[in-house]
Amino acid sequence: MLRKLAARSPWLYRINTGSCNGCDVELLTTACIPRYDVERLGCRYCGSPRHADIVLITGPLTVRLKDKVLRVWEEIPEPKVTVAVGICPVSGGVFRGGYSIAGPVDKYLPIDINVPGCPPRPQAIIEGVIKARDAWLARMGG
């Protein structure tokens, strides 16, 4: 019961692993454009990884950022759910096979939900967040 209540307050945290910023802008629109308003689901973008429940990863995971991303991801308290936003974290996307790309991200991190697209529509991201919330609830045991 408490867990069901808690699942209605998923706080989001973005990790940019070398993204072109396209997906980040789409993430921003979900919060800042009144039309999409992700806050009505109880979501909030927070500035600190310690406050996060749902991690949104964008970008193809460049070699330079790999260790830092893994470190930030480790900082996030359990239970957490990881969402890959855009084709880059899912498969490498248009950067796949580049000399500077260490990804895809699921080689190093357990991803729960994929939201492919280049970039995905804001609605698709919201759909991903809702799926992530269900996965989060399942992980909390509720």
Binding site: V90, P110, N114, V115, G117, P120, A124, E127, K131
Partner: peptide
């Protein structure tokens, strides 16, 4: 069709 979000278990069926 933009309903792209899917769990990781379905990644390779996508």
């Amino acid at each position: 069709d933009w309903h792209n979000a899917h769990p990781q278990s379905e990644k390779y069926q996508w």
